[in-house]
Nucleic acid binder design. Structure first.
Lengths: 187, 187
DNA sequence: TCAATATCTAAACGTTTGTTTAGTTATTTT
DNA sequence: AAAATAACTAAACAAACGTTTAGATATTGA
């Protein structure tokens, strides 16, 4: 055999993910990726095929990162309170290590909303639909709510999440907390 | 003297503005601008100096476009109801001629939030602060509200506007209406 | 130890970006 | 009508983009 890789793919993808998280897809260049991942262009291409390939792996990496939070959310049984806790957890991840960068999936959804890239676009739409159905499940725990109200509230919460994604980029964590509290005042 | 311009600057800037509105700054190229404005690169540069110059003029053009709506909002005297009407008016502009494109100023605020371009960034921050103070003024019309509540609600409405900007890119006008109604349920 | 071979470095690839330049065309005023 | 000059067309610019290639380096198994 021959030489072994001098990097671990999972590790360098985590670095790439941080970059995409902060800057988005288009505003992250191969040059920036090289520097952050600390490996050569060639290595990136031999491991991941393309910038697009690095991005797809980064999305998976992000999903793994937040999977525990999602599992906790799925398995919780307190209805609306679970959604609120989920919002707080989402925000905490944004501010960890002092970095404001929103939610990678929500930002990507936004960046690719008008894109020709059906692969990423469809994946993000599936994510949003999945999130909405989770909201619906939690809202249904309140048996006094009719389906029409549930539908509206689920949509409202989804859009609130979009607002949150923007807000975590430009607002303080304190302001975010107020925002979350107010969002749930009328749910 | 000599030849006159074969285009009217206000008219071609309106075209450019439509492009920036739909695609944002980075995703609008000079090539696209040439085609949409229907004039040559040289003419663009001789009139506006740079792509950045075209963008600044486009922002002004957008502001003129929405100035009537803002004036109506400023001069109204029904408190929270005025903010709600303002939200509906903002959305209507997004959907006119069937195009979904959010709010140029809010999108620009988002796109330039991490940018080195202090000129645009500061202008957008000033816009957001101005909008917030307008919200505060309307909220103060309800004399039973204390200043702390007003501050929180103004922030909430500002973030709701961010959510709206995203939503008008990907949701139907009907869903947006539900969203607005729910936003004001707890104000 | 040494041939085999995967990974490394570094340079160059073709596009596309925003911008500039040189040269032609058209209109105005004298 | 003709000189003057502003606006036009079209080609080329340097820089940055994502991607590929050629050749050097280092590590493996026999």
């Amino acid at each position: 055999m021959a030489r072994k890789k001098q990097y671990i793919e999972e590790e360098v993808i985590d670095k790439a993910m941080q970059l995409f998280w902060r800057n988005g897809y288009e505003n992250t260049s191969m040059q920036m990726l090289e520097k952050k991942m600390n490996i050569n262009k060639f290595s990136i291409y031999s491991s991941f095929g393309s910038k697009h390939g690095v991005f797809l792996k980064s999305l998976q990496c992000y999903k793994r990162k937040v999977s525990a939070m999602f599992e906790k959310f799925k398995n919780a049984t307190n209805g609306v309170e679970d959604i609120k806790a989920f919002f707080y957890d989402s925000v905490d991840i944004c501010y960890q290590d002092g970095n404001q960068k929103g939610c990678l999936l929500t930002s990507t959804y936004h960046e690719f909303s008008q894109s020709e890239d059906k692969l990423v676009k469809n994946e993000m739409e599936a994510f949003m639909e999945n999130l909405k159905s989770l909201f619906v499940n939690k809202l249904r725990m309140d048996v006094t709510k009719d389906e029409e109200t549930i539908e509206k509230q689920a949509n409202f919460l989804l859009l609130a999440k979009h607002g949150l994604a923007t807000a975590t980029r430009v607002n303080s964590q304190r302001e975010i907390q107020d925002y979350i509290e107010m969002t749930f005042n009328n749910i």
